[in-house]
Design a protein around this nucleic acid. Structure first.
Lengths: 249, 249
DNA sequence: GAAATATTATGTATTTTGTACGCAAAGAAG
DNA sequence: CTTCTTTGCGTACAAAATACATAATATTTC
């Protein structure tokens, strides 16, 4: 860092003269290492899960960490998040959105590091999903503990963000296979929101929105009467978003 | 920047050995200058406004810029935002929330600078509000143009964030005086959301939430029948948030 | 001071949406 | 064939959103 002679815009006296050398200005600014962390959610056995890796810092020995990396010099923030996702899961076409920047001066034991947290949603059963590193594991979001850095707080923020978002937008479908039954969809909402919903009213609500495509196919290998399978009509949703109603809580 | 020998967590080979010197690790990371930018909204003459300053970079001569500053070495992100607010407006007890990080590599002509955008809401008529710098001006959000950096995009994101938020939480009151009439409140919602609402139903909705305190005082110096003045009961809201209903759109 | 005008304040009728159930049909298991 | 579970459809009732009517109170105008 080279901030000895940095003059912040806030303290700079306005002389009427404009700053001509903006490169010199920026070089005088103190700099901070930036990382991007991905909170990758999946849904398995009726539980919301998050993908974590064992920390490779001695300081956090045995603790779990989010999947992150250093931001490259000429890389977009989102680009970095996609890069992490691709390398860790083998998947490229996944839902990804920025949630929040975390920048407490003491959040990293090695000095100040600011991280931008991204939330990602994917289908754990997807055929493209390939997790090579055996230090990677899916963890139930319900009982997280023993996490490195401020990563527990980051997961909590992303989880709350997700709870709000799935009620307002059709994000939840990213966590399911392309074809799903209404029961699977309901289980997902119940698990994420932590509530019990009435089957019949849940069904009625989704049908009234008219975004589900009836595939005229049925579940297989279920130990009960198979339910119909549906697809979400993302195209129709984009055209007429207003018909999306908030889900009960 | 000292990233010649930086090894990203993603590429680091997992040998089973843990990293003991986390300070050396962080020092090897490339670093980026960080700024915090405040999108300060106010409400005046039935219009949403944003506080801007003339850019002091020759590159952006004549263009308008958000109020921002360099992040200090041991400063919390939010702390920096409060510092900017205090120095620019003289106010310390204002609504402030992080909205998004903006980090395109080319958003600053002097080299890469990442900024964390905060949204702030204040009452333009507040007696504590003191704007010293005569390069500072309130601008209508409706017709912004000629802005420096990516600041126009940042304002747009914050505006959209605000539109969503005022429907779900009682943020709007931060833009009004402590005592306000129902008409002022409705004008505020109509201006921010860009819709027309029915007076009688708007009133009914707010009264049914039961968060407004009837002050038994009336408007003064208005050219028509004075309306009753109310205060928002933040305490009651904190206890029973569930009674907040979404406002119409 | 009376009438016209503008705005506040309150109410009601209708429609739409949410909620709580009942029950038949389809498959699985014994 | 009977029992159990789950899907799928329907209906009655309660709550909320919407549209609109009218009275009350102040200012302005003549």
């Amino acid at each position: 860092m080279n901030n000895a002679d940095a003059v912040s815009p806030l303290l700079r006296k306005r002389t009427g003269e404009l700053i001509s050398d903006s490169k010199a200005l920026v070089s005088s600014y103190p700099a901070v290492p930036i990382t991007v962390d991905c909170v990758i959610f999946g849904f398995e056995e009726n539980e919301l899960k998050v993908l974590l890796i064992r920390s490779d810092l001695q300081f956090f020995e045995g603790k779990w960490s989010l999947l992150g990396d250093i931001l490259k010099e000429t890389e977009e923030l989102k680009e970095a998040a996609y890069r992490i996702l691709l390398q860790r899961t083998g998947m490229s076409d996944v839902f990804l959105e920025q949630v929040k920047a975390f920048g407490s001066p003491d959040r990293h034991p090695g000095g100040r590091v600011i991280t931008i947290a991204y939330c990602s949603l994917l289908n754990i059963q997807h055929h493209e999903l390939k997790i090579y590193d055996n230090e990677l594991h899916w963890h139930k979001v319900k009982n997280l503990c023993n996490m490195a850095f401020d990563h527990q707080a980051i997961v909590v923020e992303c989880y709350q963000w997700l709870q709000k978002r799935i009620q307002e937008h059709p994000l939840a479908f990213n966590l399911l296979p392309e074809k799903f039954s209404l029961r699977e969809l309901q289980n997902l909402y119940e698990a994420i929101l932590g509530v019990e919903l009435d089957r019949r009213n849940f069904r009625k609500k989704f049908f009234s929105m008219d975004f589900l495509i009836d595939l005229d196919q049925y579940e297989e290998n279920v130990p009960h009467r198979p339910g119909k399978l549906y697809k979400f009509n993302f195209g129709k949703y984009e055209i007429n978003k207003k018909k999306w109603f908030a889900i009960d809580f």
